[in-house]
């Protein structure tokens, strides 16, 4: 058990470095020059552009810059923004909590709605509740978040005036954004849980349990559900990553100050140190969540416990 955790952390670190390299390559190999974005092309001479590129360190090969970035990173230095020279780390630390709160709340909504509806849907197949759950699942995965978010603003802020349309302070400002994002995750989880629950219900060990005379309630909630949750939990790990990415759009819609907004702005300005910093923090969260997901298997599934 302890050994497998170390192996997981080790491979996770490799993946983290890989993600940083990929982002570095994408931002460097693709066209577009940060120096040109910062200077007015009409007024700047080639010498000015060259000086700016030298100041930003862009005249050196990108593997040299990556090595330098990486060594600084190991010393806790995330570099400075290319746009306004602000250090990256304090900026991320300041805005990360708002995004984490949004991601955590959305994930909680997604998991609760997703699992409850998914199980009810499978247990009452082709009944009205099943139809409702399937519709919620389909709408969840089909509605663009920037639209469902705007509809919520129209209803609850513009028409009813109950909730603030923008801002990132206080619990009230968290309700609509996390509902918008949570519904997407709920859509995926409902569909997943329903399918895997239906698969499990048709397995022979359920017939064995029935023939033993166990009550349907015990069979469904103690035996079928635990088996059906395994694929669903794998999916929850992936969904948290999508939620973190989803905050890019949601924080724009609800004008929240979070790292989703920061990375969107930084990507458009080709502000590499900021993009790298946000990717680093998001990847760490993603890796931790997936590590927890892997560990949770051994609590849910005795086969995994015995294997390790």
């Amino acid at each position: 058990m302890g050994k497998s955790v170390f192996v997981r952390i080790y491979t996770s670190l490799l993946v983290l470095v890989g993600a940083l390299i990929v982002v570095f390559i994408i931002m460097n190999v693709l066209p577009g020059d940060p120096a040109l974005m910062m200077l007015d092309p009409a007024e700047s001479t080639p010498e000015m552009i060259a000086t700016m590129r030298h100041q930003l360190g862009l005249d050196r090969p990108f593997y040299v810059r990556f090595a330098e970035y990486f060594v600084n990173l190991l010393h806790g230095d995330f570099g400075n923004s290319m746009v306004n020279s602000d250090p990256v780390l304090p900026k991320i630390i300041k805005h990360f909590p708002a995004t984490l709160a949004l991601t955590a709340m959305s994930s909680a909504i997604a998991v609760v709605i997703g699992i409850v509806l998914g199980v009810l849907s499978a247990l009452h197949r082709n009944k009205p509740i099943d139809l409702l759950a399937r519709l919620i699942g389909l709408f969840g995965i089909s509605m663009p978040t920037f639209w469902s978010g705007i509809l919520l603003i129209l209803i609850f802020s513009v028409q009813l005036g109950w909730l603030p349309a923008m801002g990132s302070t206080g619990f009230k400002s968290l309700i609509m954004p996390s509902l918008t994002l949570g519904l997407v995750g709920a859509g995926f989880i409902v569909r997943m849980v329903r399918t895997s629950m239906l698969d499990v219900i048709n397995e022979s060990f359920i017939v064995t349990l029935r023939s033993k005379g166990l009550s349907e309630r015990v069979i469904m909630y103690q035996h079928a559900l635990r088996n059906a949750l395994i694929p669903a939990i794998t999916m929850i790990g992936m969904i948290v990553g999508e939620m973190l990415a989803g905050t890019v759009v949601i924080e724009t819609v609800f004008s929240r100050q979070g790292i989703g907004r920061i990375i969107a702005d930084a990507i458009m300005a080709k502000d590499l140190p900021v993009v790298q910093g946000v990717v680093f923090f998001s990847a760490v969260v993603y890796i931790i969540v997936n590590l927890l997901v892997d560990l949770s298997y051994s609590f849910i599934d005795p086969r995994v416990r015995r294997a390790s």
Binding site: V15, A19, V22, M27, L30, E242, A245, G246, I267, A283
Partner: peptide, 23 residues
């Protein structure tokens, strides 16, 4: 291994970075 690394970056962010870089 390249695919594994690319999969840790959520699709939306990957698309955003590429679209922003290409214009």
């Amino acid at each position: 291994r390249i695919v594994d690394v690319l999969m840790t970056i959520p699709g939306v962010l990957l698309a955003l970075a590429i679209a922003a870089a290409l214009g």
